[in-house]
Write a protein that binds this DNA or RNA. Structure first.
Length: 285
DNA sequence: TTAGCATGCGTAC
DNA sequence: TACGCCTGCTAAT
């Protein structure tokens, strides 16, 4: 259940654990069996991530993985693999194993197809080679809500429902604001914030966006406890008081996904502020 | 025990 | 806009 930071962490861990080493490649579930057989015994050259796409390069080709909503890629030392009926892909060197379950896609692709995956992706704030001008070109021309463009992987690669809700809050932007009404200065601030928050999430392994006076320690409140783990302002906090103003967090559906925002901090028509509310999370600042 | 939901996306209407 | 898909966790029965 990833946003972009998860795929980047996986790419890093796959390369670190298995890079340049011959691997046993198998698909106990069977749905990737033919491709697994082609790769079995070959060496993993390296792994990379572009947005939510995970690209695992072998000598003969690339395994293209997209986790979708429920996919998981977990490292363990369990032999034999637990629950093999659901195990789409297992990579192992005999000591460690990486187990893929429930992905949206797991396909063996050619170098040409790999290049197309990269080319079709929008700029990814986690990557050093990302060009935010490509995102601005689309944002500045679109009449769709800015919240919709934030979830468009051809505009902001790797941004998912959590980073969307949080970056809109941190910059006091009305989620329904038509994208073309966003100023260049606020766009730049949003992009810079995504770079910082998403890269920090790669390092820490969870999404933290709460800063300064709004941390559990500063507010004397209990830390958030759920399976997402991170300290956030509005994501999945519908009905709970905004940490800044106390107004209950609102939610609605946009393109089939839940959108969360504070109606007071992000009122209708609000075009945003260049400085993030609360500043940067402690771990980053 | 079951139903519903989730950090997503493609296709059909 | 609605639905299907893949798995696992949680809340409701």
């Amino acid at each position: 259940m990833p946003e972009g930071h998860v795929t980047h962490r996986l790419a890093r861990e796959l390369t670190r654990t298995f890079g340049e080493r011959p691997l046993t490649v198998a698909s106990p579930q069977g749905r990737f069996a033919d491709s697994a057989a082609q790769l079995d015994g070959g060496s993993l050259v390296g792994a990379d991530a572009v947005g939510k796409h995970l690209l695992i390069d072998f000598d003969p080709g690339t395994v293209w993985v997209h986790l979708g909503l429920i996919g998981k890629f977990q490292f363990n030392q369990s032999f034999p693999a637990p629950n093999p009926a659901t195990l789409r892909l297992r990579l192992t060197d005999g000591a460690s194993a990486a187990d893929l379950r429930g992905p949206q896609w797991c396909r063996l692709i050619t170098p040409v197809e790999r290049a197309a995956v990269v080319a079709n992706s929008g700029p990814d704030p986690i990557r050093g080679d990302a060009d935010p001008e490509r995102a601005w070109a689309k944002v500045s021309r679109s009449r769709k809500p800015f919240a919709a463009l934030l979830m468009d992987q051809s505009v902001f690669a790797g941004v998912g429902n959590i980073f969307r809700a949080e970056v809109l809050f941190r910059h006091a932007i009305d989620p329904m604001l038509p994208a073309q009404r966003l100023s260049r200065s606020v766009f730049d601030a949003v992009w810079d914030d995504l770079v910082i928050l998403m890269r920090a999430a790669v390092e820490v392994g969870r999404i933290d966006t709460v800063a300064g006076d709004h941390t559990p320690e500063a507010m004397g409140r209990d830390p958030r406890v759920d399976r997402h783990g991170g300290e956030v302002y509005v994501y999945r906090r519908a009905g709970l008081p905004c940490y800044v103003c106390g107004t209950p967090v609102a939610t609605t559906a946009l393109a089939g996904r839940h959108l969360y925002w504070c109606p007071t901090c992000q009122p209708a028509g609000a075009r945003g502020v260049p400085t993030a509310i609360g500043g940067l999370p402690e771990a980053i600042a």
